[in-house]
Nucleic acid binder design. Structure first.
Lengths: 239, 239
DNA sequence: ACCTTCCTCGCTGTTTCTGGGGAGTGGAAA
DNA sequence: TTTCCACTCCCCAGAAACAGCGAGGAAGGT
């Protein structure tokens, strides 16, 4: 596992990429350059409409998707609540589902060591950049220590490219909410009922309803809960 | 404006920081090391409850806060919908409010050039790391070209520290949700009605209601929308 | 073995939300 | 100037969610 990696060259190659498919080739080359078992970029999207590329076996990837493992995968859950890159050992593997997931992952060739970098983009986009390997703890610690920063940059550039290519698919860049709409969504997210929200904002409940409706429309939401969820995941409101 | 910057030393210093106040000293030192006019870290929070540190004058900062400029600042608006670091020249300064904001910023000593890096953390956290300077376009382009990557890493480490210090404020942890509860919350967050969720999960609506109620209880939520919002902000569900 | 948690199903009545109308102001942009 | 958009207010009927009560079986951990 090693050491002489030309970061500049990698990032330049990444920058020069012009098609989504090329990322797969690049990540394989990266895996070889770093001499680790696996390297994966994984754009997580609850809709199941996820994009990813990497060096896991097709069988594992298929199984992961079919079983909806992104819901119990401690790597995803853990990274989602963190900002730091995180070593898999520091995650919570205590639940039964997590342990089962772990043994199965090992059986499918995923390394016993792992290092994952959470990445977040606009509109609540969330992705992971993961390096995995089979080795002892000390060796792995040296590796992450040595290459952590490089991996952050690579992850950043990877996501940049992925966003660039996927941008066309996501025309749903919702209009920004008006201040009043933000207020309404925020208070609703805090558990207030419509009556309470209207009271807090000193407006009639009818007026409030107009805000909720227009927010729902702007966000393409089906109901209030959906609208609040979307507003949150797009970072339009903070609770 | 310059060139010999010891990135390792900077990041180590950042990592060793143990108090929020120290970040202010570090950012001043950084500004001097990079020989630019201003360097600012700005945690943007829609609530107005923002944290920031940097080298802008106190007058400008106060005015910014009082006037709620974060709502019209093209840097914030532009960065919020981007993932790339962005040069200020590429932002949209066309609106009247933006032009007024710009001339005023210049008057308060903000540089005519700027480079801002959006950073996103868990729960929709959003921050900016900005470098600003007074110089010509070509010189500025050289600078951003030369130091863009370093700045990304510095921004990352800055935000890491800021999150670390702020985390202590909100240690609320709740019991984990059961798989079925997660399913229910997730589908509700996706805009499904109770009937649709029950149908999707192939359970009766009555059963579904029990899940929602127990999730609400576990999360300390007042209603379904609140429960979904809390589940999201705690990273228990991914939408 | 016991206790806890999870999963599943049922009833009733009350409160709240939703969707469909409508109308008028003021400010900012084209 | 006209045309947007944000903000404010109003009514009504049907649909949906809420609160509170109940039950039993399966699986896991102490």
């Amino acid at each position: 596992m090693a050491n002489t990696v030309n970061l500049d060259q990698i990032l330049q190659d990444l920058d020069a990429t012009s098609a989504l498919e090329d990322l797969q080739d690049i990540i394989v080359a990266l895996r070889d350059a770093f001499r680790v078992d696996h390297m994966v970029y994984h754009w997580v999207d609850s809709a199941g409409d996820q994009y990813g590329c990497g060096t896991y076996s097709d069988e594992w990837r298929d199984r992961y998707v079919v079983q909806n493992y992104h819901r119990i995968d401690p790597v995803i859950i853990g990274c989602f609540q963190r900002f730091h890159p995180v070593d898999w050992k520091r995650l919570d593997w205590s639940s039964k589902a997590a342990r089962h997931f772990h043994t199965e992952a090992l059986a499918y060739g995923v390394g016993n060591q792992g290092f994952s970098i959470p990445i977040r983009g606009p509109n609540g986009q969330f992705a992971l950049f993961t390096v995995s390997h089979n080795c002892e703890d000390a060796i792995w610690a040296d590796f992450t220590e040595a290459h952590g920063r490089d991996l952050i940059l690579i992850a950043h550039f990877f996501n940049r490219k992925a966003l660039e290519f996927e941008k066309t698919r996501q025309p749903e860049q919702s209009r920004a909410l008006s201040p009043r709409e933000v207020d309404a969504m925020t208070l609703l997210a805090m558990g207030y009922s419509r009556a309470q929200v209207a009271d807090t904002l000193s407006i009639s409940e009818h007026t409030l309803r107009v805000y909720i409706e227009s927010a729902r429309f702007k966000l393409g939401a089906l109901n209030t809960t959906h609208a609040v969820a979307r507003a949150m995941s797009r970072g339009l409101i903070v609770v």
